[in-house]
Each structure stands twice: as structure tokens, then as C-alpha cells.
């Protein structure tokens, strides 16, 4: 959204960081595929889904500290697992994270991390590789493993947890409550075509991850900066909900306290036209008029109101938004 709008609605910027990664992944692919976006950071890994070229929204709004909010956001999942997660031997198993004690050992950090494990396995391209080996060795000795075995175990665990979370994310989406017959009948199982890696460590994890998920991996030369790319090229979006009631002869929007008179003979098509008219008008007012024709309806409901045995009115709920996408002029990246 434009900067001045975000000042008026700061809560709308929640999750703008991970959202930028999703849009970055879209900017790298620019197609209609179903992608898993894996953004591996230092402390956490963020996961998101792009289904058939459309980022998946959280059905009940952004979740903050375990609480649902009504802020519309992408469906995101964050794992306490990153390139700098601390490795430990707890006497029984190798644990990874959930905390970060500092950078990877090869960059002067206090403890071995998954980054050190990769560094070791890939021949020491990062920082001071001897520090990676040294930090890994102290844990390997406690666990009775060779450094090589430890490093592989770490990669296996990281991938295992990511695969489990990704599968769970798909399952959660498949089990999203549906309230209409056609939704149940038409809901197919989806399968990922692609895993898009974001962040500097993506190249080390994503190919193996994709293999385990049975799909292709995309690690682009811009993967390390895809978050910034997403922030730069995402076009502004706006979504609006309209509730109309023919008995009250009134409609209300969820934006800017707008309400007005509603013709009692209206049909669903009229309610949709009205919602779109307001969306486009607000878009223009917010300086995003050039994208006002990239709209899509995400909610259409109508119900009869019955009193006694006859219909006395109708209620409509319509949701319309400027679809997420990239700004005009951006045509994708070189492969």
C-alpha cells in the first residue's frame, strides 16, 4: 500500500516482511504454478503457498501470538529453525534451535549451526571454514559421531522438519472449512510444482527439500535478495467487504465507515457492482487508481430473509480486492 495509507492503517502492515518474500517468489516465477515459498533466515524459516499463481490468504486473518486478528494477510507459517539456530547434543539427540546464540561459528559465532554444517559439507565456502569444523567437532565428539555424520544428520533434520511443515500446510488448506456443496465436491488435492527458495541459505537446503516433496526446486541468483525484490515490485492491493440488506434498504462497507442506501429490488449482481464501484473509488483516492481494473471477487453470498412463510428481503455479502501482483512495467527476471 502507499506509504501515507500505511500511516493511517498501520496494522495492515503486519507481516509485510514475509509477505514481501511471497511476492518476491512470485516475481521470480511470474506463472500459474503451485509453489511452496521457503524463506530461510537466521533464526526462523517462513513458509507460504502460491496456489496456481495466487498467494494463499489466511482464512481467518493474520495470527499474532496465537491470536486471530481480522487483518487480511497471506497464510504464513514460521518455524523456529534457521541458518543460525544453535546445535546441541542433549545426551540423546542432536537438537537444532529454537534459539539463536549468534552468527554461525564460521562468522565468529559461539556455537555450531546448520550454516556450519552446510559449510563443512560444501567444502568451506563461507567465512572461516576451520571454525565451522571445530565447532561441529565438539558436538560430534559428545554424540559419538564423525563431523561428516553430524553435518548430514543436521541437514536431514532441517529438511525433515521443513517437509513435515509444508505437508501440514497443504493439509490444513485442504481441510479449511467449506460451507457449500460445490466447494466440497470440487476441492481437489493440490500438489506443489515448485519449491522457491528465498534467502542466502536457500541454495543449500531447497534442492534436497524439493526432491523429498517430489517437485522442482527454484533457487535463483536473486534468491538471496528476493525479499527486497518483492517489496520493490509488489503492486499495492486493497480489499473491501460489503454487506447489504434489502429490508434495511442499506449497505455498509468495512472501510472508512462508508454506508448508504440500497435499492430493495437489488440482486447479487447489483451488490457486486456497488462493491466494485467503491473499491475502485477508494483505490483512486489512495493513489492506486492504475490498478483498479485488476480486481477479483473473493466472497459472494446471498440469503433470503424469511418471516413466517414468505421472503421479506435479501442479504448480500460481497468481498472484492485488487489482486496481489507485480507493478506495471515489471516483466520478470532473467532465468
Amino acid at each position: 500500500m502507499p506509504l501515507e495509507v500505511s500511516l493511517r492503517y498501520p496494522c495492515e502492515t503486519v507481516f509485510s516482511g514475509p509477505a514481501a518474500s511471497v511476492m518476491g517468489a512470485f516475481a521470480l516465477t511470474m506463472d500459474q504454478q503451485t509453489s511452496v515459498v521457503v524463506d530461510i533466515g537466521g533464526t526462523t524459516t517462513d513458509l507460504a503457498l502460491i496456489l496456481g499463481g495466487k498467494p494463499l490468504y489466511a482464512s481467518r486473518g493474520a495470527v499474532l501470538g496465537g491470536h486471530y486478528s481480522h487483518v487480511r494477510s497471506f497464510a504464513l507459517r514460521s518455524l523456529a529453525l534457521g541458518g543460525d539456530s544453535a546445535l546441541r547434543w542433549n545426551g540423546e539427540i542432536i537438537s537444532i534451535g529454537p534459539d539463536r546464540l549468534g552468527p554461525a561459528a564460521c562468522f565468529g559465532g559461539p556455537v555450531a549451526t546448520p550454516t556450519d554444517a552446510i559449510n563443512y559439507l560444501e567444502g568451506g565456502k563461507l567465512g572461516r571454514p576451520e571454525l565451522s569444523a571445530q565447532a561441529l567437532k565438539s558436538i560430534a565428539q559428545q554424540a559419538g559421531l564423525t563431523v561428516e555424520e553430524l553435518a548430514q544428520e543436521v541437514i536431514r533434520q532441517v529438511n525433515g522438519r521443513l517437509v513435515a511443515s509444508i505437508k501440514d500446510m497443504f493439509k490444513t488448506w485442504e481441510q479449511e472449512p467449506a460451507y457449500k456443496i460445490w466447494e466440497i465436491v470440487n476441492k481437489r488435492k493440490v500438489k506443489a510444482d515448485l519449491v522457491v527458495g528465498i534467502g542466502a541459505a536457500a541454495g543449500s537446503f531447497v534442492p534436497a527439500l524439493a526432491k523429498q516433496l517430489g517437485c522442482r526446486a527454484l533457487v535463483h541468483q536473486y534468491s538471496p535478495v528476493a525479499n527486497a525484490l518483492g517489496a520493490a515490485v509488489a503492486r499495492p492491493t486493497l480489499s473491501l467487504l460489503l454487506h447489504a440488506d434489502t429490508r434495511q434498504r442499506a449497505y455498509h462497507l468495512n472501510l472508512e465507515g462508508i454506508s448508504g442506501e440500497f435499492n430493495p429490488h437489488s440482486q447479487l449482481e447489483d451488490a457486486k457492482k456497488l462493491a466494485l464501484k467503491h473499491l475502485q473509488q477508494i483505490a483512486r483516492e489512495r493513489g492506486m487508481g492504475r490498478y483498479a481494473d485488476r480486481y477479483e471477487f473473493f466472497l459472494e453470498e446471498q440469503f433470503n430473509m424469511i418471516r413466517g412463510w414468505s421472503t421479506t428481503g435479501k442479504q448480500f455479502d460481497v468481498g472484492v480486492q485488487i489482486a496481489p501482483g507485480v507493478i506495471d512495467g515489471f516483466e520478470g527476471v532473467q532465468p
Binding site: P177, I181, E301, N304, M305
Partner: peptide, 25 residues
């Protein structure tokens, strides 16, 4: 399991109609 079948009715003004569970939702 909440399944209100918002697209099913015996007939439009029949008691067993689309919005039967709307207010429950």
C-alpha cells in the same frame, strides 16, 4: 463439523433452505 450447505434447499421458502444455519454461523 459445521456444514451449513449454503447452496442447498428443498425449495426457496421451505424451512429446510439455504440460510437455515446462517445465523448460527
Amino acid at each position: 463439523v459445521f456444514f451449513p450447505a449454503f447452496d442447498w434447499a428443498i425449495s426457496p421458502s421451505h424451512p429446510e433452505r439455504e440460510e437455515r444455519l446462517l445465523y448460527t454461523r
